[in-house]
């Protein structure tokens, strides 16, 4: 609306990169043209200032997506690699999980230095379908990567999502779920581990539209000095969504006084017969446990890594596929050993 809006180089680059695009990418282009990139003034972005994070982006870039050719059938294992080159870029895709089918979807993101990558996925789960969605956002100190997903479930569908985010200049994993109740189940889990100058944002909205829905969410994180973690979780329960059972937990560990973790758990409930709860806890490493381990001879860095790993690993323990579970836990371990 503001006729006076002056676009930043990153905004101009993104609009340029999306020239002639259709669908979601056209919406992104128009939103960017109209409002610019979101800043702290936008409620949903108040801890993740995208305009500022993208201030080193000056030209259009390219987003490469691999693995989309895999057919979405029962038992399918789909591996998507999503890479944002230097510059502003976007890509999107949509998937339909057929009725009764069980599918595993793994998304691996990467962003080069001075990248502003925007990835969008629209997913529909038909009746009684099951989707295990695993997101791995590796350590990319210099790039900005924004992932957003719109996931719609039909009756009896199950969504199990796990994300592992080591942060970036700015990394955001945003998930919007429409939950019809009626035997459908949503299980959202996430882990973030942030070294200095890494930023990771986990934002989720689960909208319960029908009766008897079950939702569980467990997000755990840890941030070192100058790491910045953000958790925004919202459950909306419509009037029609009686007997919804929805539980949200975010627990995080500040590994240093100079770490920052911001959390906003929200419940918006219009039904009167529901069980909804949210818990949020921030703490520090248990110094007594650390001393105990060191007294037994375990050097401080190793003791610290073991304690953080045992704290963070819980959401990953529920990954059904053993190979994937061990892969993610091994990545977590490797990153912990390198933590400054």
């Amino acid at each position: 609306m503001t006729a006076t809006l002056t676009h930043t180089p990153a905004e101009l680059a993104l609009i340029d990169a999306l020239d002639g695009a259709t669908g979601w990418q056209a919406q992104l282009r128009e939103a960017t043209r109209r409002d610019g990139l979101p800043t702290r003034r936008h409620e949903l972005w108040k801890w993740s200032d995208l305009r500022r994070a993208a201030n080193d982006v000056t030209a259009p870039g390219r987003m490469t997506v691999t693995g989309l050719e895999t057919p979405v059938t029962d038992g399918a294992h789909i591996e998507l690699g999503v890479t944002a080159s230097t510059g502003a870029s976007a890509a999107d895709a949509s998937l339909v999980i057929p009725a009764g089918a069980s599918v595993t979807l793994v998304e691996r993101y990467s962003a080069e230095a001075a990248a502003l990558g925007n990835w969008h996925l629209a997913i529909t789960l038909e009746e009684n379908a099951r989707l295990d969605r695993i997101i791995i956002a590796p350590d990319e100190a210099a790039g900005v990567f924004i992932s957003s997903a719109e996931i719609t479930l039909a009756q009896g569908a199950h969504l199990h999502q796990r994300s592992l985010d080591f942060g970036g200049r700015l990394s955001r994993i945003e998930t919007h779920v429409t939950h019809p109740g009626e035997g459908a189940l949503v299980d959202l889990g996430g882990v973030y581990l942030l070294d200095s100058d890494r930023h990771a944002d986990t934002t989720t909205v689960v909208h319960h539209t029908g009766p008897g829905g079950v939702t569980q969410q467990l997000v755990k994180g840890a941030a070192a000095a100058k790491g910045h973690g953000v958790f925004q979780g919202k459950f909306i329960v419509d009037r029609a969504a009686q007997q919804t059972d929805a539980r949200m937990t975010h627990r995080a560990m500040m590994l240093d006084d100079r770490a920052e973790i911001d959390a906003k758990p929200e419940l918006e409930i219009y039904a009167d017969d529901v069980q909804c709860a949210h818990g949020n806890a921030l703490g520090a490493l248990d110094e007594t446990a650390l001393f105990y381990m060191r007294q037994r001879g375990i050097p401080a860095p190793r003791a610290r890594a073991l304690l953080i790993e045992s704290f963070l690993a819980e959401p990953l323990d529920a990954i059904a596929d053993e190979t994937l579970r061990e892969d993610l836990k091994a990545q977590l371990r490797t990153r912990l050993e390198a933590l400054s």
């Binding site: 446990a289 105990y292 007294q295 001879g297 375990i298 073991l306 304690l307 045992s310 704290f311």
Partner: peptide, 30 residues
């Protein structure tokens, strides 16, 4: 940890709970 490696061992008045780390793993590490 250096004192522990020299051979000093403290049996704690209040032994500390460490969730998520199996005793056997802990002892082998130590």
């Amino acid at each position: 940890e250096e004192r522990a490696a020299l051979g000093l061992y403290l049996s704690f008045q209040y032994p500390v709970e460490i969730p998520g780390v199996p005793t056997i793993t802990f002892l082998k590490e130590a």
